[in-house]
């Protein structure tokens, strides 16, 4: 084909594009690449800040403590060097299974037992969780005194978001709000402790494990309310360093 016939007419299967077309497209593609880089930077920087939540994936540690199964599986660990007085002398770590399952079955017969177990830490703010290493047995070391039902602080009304504690504390980040709703439903449905996250005016979070008025689990009764603002009136109870909010899930109110 003669060059004059082609002038500025581009035919893709010819090796060489017409020079005027080639120069035009090169310029526009370079501009497009700059635009792509700009959009990448803008979107990356415009995202909300990720929470300081950590899942020590791949780092399995050993823990010793006392199992508490109510309202959700926890490991009570004594605080070394804690002075006697008002401050709690025990810390409670949530216990969960791998993936999206709670540890109820695994620790069902271990309430009040001193144990050694292996797992991976998940933590955010003053909350800590252990994802139990399912490949290792939990070693029973002996009996221990129970943690009790906790100390009541009376009735309170709190507004916050119900999250699945495992993702929120760090297994996924971010592990809250609507983009995470489906996952949170799956986790809570699988037995992960549901927690009410209440933020103060400065955005600092306070955490309340949700239990019914009898101190029982509420997982199946809060699935429709996850990841939405809710108002809950109930009894605030302290269990060592953790807070529990006891209320009938039927009384939870969506905040419109």
């Amino acid at each position: 084909m003669s060059e004059p016939e082609r002038d500025d007419f581009y035919v893709g299967y010819f090796d060489q594009a017409p020079s005027v077309v080639g120069a035009f497209v090169k310029g526009k593609v370079l501009l497009l690449l700059v635009l792509v880089a700009g959009v990448a930077a803008l979107l990356a920087l415009a995202q909300g800040t990720f929470a300081p939540a950590v899942f020590e994936f791949g780092n399995v540690r050993d823990f010793e403590g006392v199992i508490a199964t109510k309202p959700y599986p926890m490991l009570r660990v004594s605080r070394p060097g804690e002075s006697p007085g008002e401050a709690p002398t025990w810390s409670r770590y949530f216990l969960v299974d791998p993936f999206k399952f709670g540890a109820d079955e695994r620790v069902a017969n271990l309430d009040g037992k001193r144990v050694r177990l292996s797992g991976t830490l998940v933590y955010r703010d003053d909350q800590t969780m252990i994802e139990i290493d399912a490949s290792k047995d939990i070693e029973v070391l002996g009996e221990a005194a129970g943690g009790g039902a906790g100390l009541s602080f009376g009735t309170v009304t709190l507004v916050g978001e119900i999250v699945d504690s495992k993702c929120f504390l760090g297994v996924m980040n971010p592990g809250e709000l609507k983009p995470h709703k489906a996952c949170a439903v799956r986790c809570v449905s699988g037995g992960i402790p549901p927690v009410l996250v209440v933020r103060d005016g400065q955005g600092a979070a306070r955490y309340f494990m949700l239990a019914d008025t009898n101190g029982g689990q509420v997982n199946d009764r809060v699935l429709d309310l996850i990841a939405e603002p809710v108002r809950i009136q109930g009894e605030m109870v302290r269990m060592d360093n953790l807070w529990v909010l006891k209320a009938d899930p039927a009384t939870y109110q969506l905040v419109k």
């Binding site: 880089a37 990448a40 930077a41 990356a44 995202q47 996924m172 980040n173």
Partner: peptide, 29 residues
Amino acid sequence: RTMVLGVLLYLGLFIGITATTNPTATAET
């Protein structure tokens, strides 16, 4: 080739900037 370069440029910048400014962001996210 140009398209793949553009895709890698985007992914490299987006993931690199996000990971740098948010060290606690998980790899999956």
